[in-house]
Nucleic acid binder design. Structure first.
Length: 614
RNA sequence: GCGGGUGUAGCUCAGUGGUAGAGCAUCACGUUGCCAACGUGAUGGUCGUGGGUUCGAGUCCCAUCACCCGCUCCA
């Protein structure tokens, strides 16, 4: 079974050096994370596996690394400056949040009329402008016009509308001018909210310099930045993240010849290719058929509904992963059919009918027309584009969650199981008393110490877990993390011995695909105060560290050394013992099966390389 | 941004106004012959931060920051 909660993965990440909170010494800063020694290895391996599949394995793909900062005009014509910039307003009563323009449009004619009169504006756009233009007044005006919350049909208690510009701003060169002045705007740049636009800017460069024929694609891996309104879920949604994006340029439908793939078929092909990639790297070689099916059941393809589609897309299929706990299904990649929207948006001299079809304005800023002469079709056109866009940092989280296993390695005795049962019974008895007290307090109008519903929900979960013992052993501690378990005395008493017990009889193992594993090989001496063994072990480590990440460790007993490597997903460990000194063989131990095999030191390279799938 | 929760040693947590603790981890010495061994000793905390109440605050109050759980985002 993979991780049961994001918390488990978070803990492991921070303890073992995958991910650390950013700027921690200063109390941290929301939504920014640093990748530690193991995290950077894993992330690099994820990117390498993607590049391998997206670029090297194909005849029709090339790489690119465009600048993070681009002309502000890129974002004006791509549509981001307009659509990534929404004034939002909250209803304090219902906790609902609305885009101000959407909220206003949902009001009755009378309500809007009152607002028009109060602000002297004539339409919703003007109204939004007016409300944003007078800080402090808006809540009062929304109140006196009796603006309704569509969620419940009642008048809302509205906050100040706030601007959420999803793009981070900076300036090129020294600027002292105030925000919004011409001087400031002229120097303004945005940190890219997607890497895609850098590819579009280079479509013609790549096509010409490599004499590429459509269909062909460009791949890019890089950081992107979005000032998200609601970051969270560890590294799932962060304000700085890394994307792995492909723009695959194809013929527009009207030029597709008999027997060639059209845009919908190319879209489908990329969905399939990308989906297979996710499954391949989510599955370790040790997985059997049952396990492979289980893994597959946690990945799905989902076509976006028409109202979900972004302004540029004709169709988008998301690839989603079932993350543990509350996060649930989350998007890890979107494969979009962006038509000729982007290249047209950045082109001059686009025919009027195309502008109309794409809902674009004439581009007077661009010096370029991103079109292409197709020698087969004998026609000049602006290509369509299929965009498979994956999150590299989300991929890291996905593979960690899927690889995380807590395995039972020592069968607990009946006595130990009974102990847990009786402890749980004690917790139940005490908690039921607390529930009664809380109910009494509520009746008497007093503030209860516990929330009866939550405590009962906790008890139900605990009972379920206990009933399924010993199979559910790994869920016992999770149950104790339940909201309703807070401040229950017996729970606090119960936790430490249970934690200790769990540690004794389980091992944590990251069953990562070997190509992703941050460390490929660990070498141990069986006995660290025998100099010959230590020396031999170190020399083996030195031999392999030139080829892939290899570590040496002698700081604990052999069992503990194995466990430490299991926890970070190292696929193979080598132990040098007394026999090694005599016959030149060592023990190779595999991570998932814990199987051991005797291999001659001279054969190690040939033994390991195919197994590591490098 | 709003509501709820949390913040004490590197990690997991205990500590309900009166001398800051445990387990694990780390380091040293001894022991240890293949799956989280053991003994002895040591290091490590201005209790998230800043104010306040008090003779006295980890504990009570206020503010602030971060994280977790929930609300139109989307890699």
């Amino acid at each position: 079974m993979p991780a049961k909660s994001l918390e488990q993965v978070r803990n492991l990440c921070m303890r073992r050096g995958f991910v650390f909170p950013g700027s921690a010494a200063y109390g941290g800063v929301a939504s920014f994370w640093d990748y530690g020694p193991l995290g950077v290895e894993l992330l690099n391996n994820v990117k390498k596996a993607w590049w391998q599949d997206a670029v090297y394995a194909r005849d029709d793909m090339d790489g690119l690394d465009a600048a993070v900062l681009m002309s502000r005009k890129v974002w004006q014509h791509s549509g981001h400056e307009a659509t990534f910039n929404d004034p939002l307003v909250d209803n304090k009563k219902t906790k609902k949040r609305y885009r101000l323009d959407h909220l206003l449009e949902a009001q009755t004619h009378e309500v809007r009329a009152a607002l028009y009169e109060a602000t002297g504006s004539e339409d919703v756009v003007g109204l939004v402008h007016a409300l944003m233009g007078q800080p402090g007044n808006a809540p009062m005006q929304l109140h006196s016009a009796q603006v309704i919350d569509p969620a419940n049909g009642e008048q809302g208690d509205w906050t100040e509308p706030r601007q959420f510009n999803l793009m981070f701003q900076s300036h090129v060169g020294p600027v002292s001018a105030a925000q919004g002045t011409d001087e400031e705007k002229a120097a303004r740049v945005y940190l890219r909210p997607e890497t895609a636009q850098g590819i579009f800017m280079n479509f013609a460069h790549v096509q010409r310099s490599l004499a590429r024929k459509v269909p062909f694609g460009i791949a890019q891996i890089g950081k992107a930045f979005r000032n998200e309104i609601t970051p969270g879920n560890f590294i799932f949604r962060t304000r700085e993240f890394e994307q792995m994006e492909i723009e695959f340029f194809i013929k527009p439908p009207q030029f597709v010849a008999e027997g060639e793939k059209n845009d919908e078929q190319w879209h489908e092909e990329w969905v399939q290719q990308r989906y297979r990639w996710w499954l391949r790297y989510a599955t370790p070689p040790s997985a059997g058929n049952v396990e492979m099916e289980e893994t597959e059941s946690r990945f799905r393809k989902r076509a976006q509904a028409a109202d979900e589609l972004a302004h540029y897309a004709k169709a988008t299929t998301d690839i989603e992963y079932l993350f543990p706990g509350a996060l649930g299904w989350g998007e890890i990649e979107g494969v979009a059919n962006r038509t000729d929207f982007d290249l047209s948006a950045h082109s001059k001299d686009v025919p009027e009918e195309d502008l109309k079809r794409l809902k674009l304005e004439v581009n007077k800023d661009s010096n370029e027309k991103f079109d292409y002469f197709d020698p087969d079709a004998k026609a000049r056109y602006i290509p369509w584009v299929i965009e498979p866009s994956a999150g590299a940092t989300r991929a890291l989280l996905t593979f960690l969650c899927e690889a995380y296993h807590e395995e039972l390695v020592k069968e607990p005795t009946k006595q130990e199981i009974d102990q847990i049962r009786s402890d749980a019974a004690m917790i139940r008895k005490n908690a039921e008393k607390k529930v009664k007290e809380a109910r009494k307090d509520i009746e008497a109008g007093k503030e209860p110490k516990h929330q009866p519903d939550k405590v009962e929900a906790f008890l139900a979960q605990l009972e379920d877990v206990v009933a399924r013992l010993p199979a559910s052993l790994d869920e016992v501690l999770l149950a104790l993390d339940h909201e309703g378990a807070q401040n229950l005395e017996p729970v606090k008493k119960f936790r430490p011995p249970t934690e200790k017990f769990m540690e004794d009889c389980t091992r944590t193992v990251l069953r990562l695909h070997p190509a992703l594993a941050p460390i490929k090989l660990a070498v141990f001496p069986l006995k660290k105060n025998k100099p010959e063994i230590v020396e031999l072990a170190k020399s083996i480590k030195q031999k392999f560290q030139k080829h892939f990440r290899t570590v040496y460790d002698d700081s604990a007993g052999i069992g503990r050394l194995y466990r430490r490597q299991d926890e970070i997903g190292t696929p193979y460990c080598i132990t040098v013992d007394f026999e090694s000194l005599e016959d030149g063989t060592v023990t190779v131990r595999e991570r998932d099966t814990m199987a051991q095999e005797r291999v001659a030191i001279d054969d190690l390279h040939d033994y390991l390389l195919p197994r590591l799938e490098l």
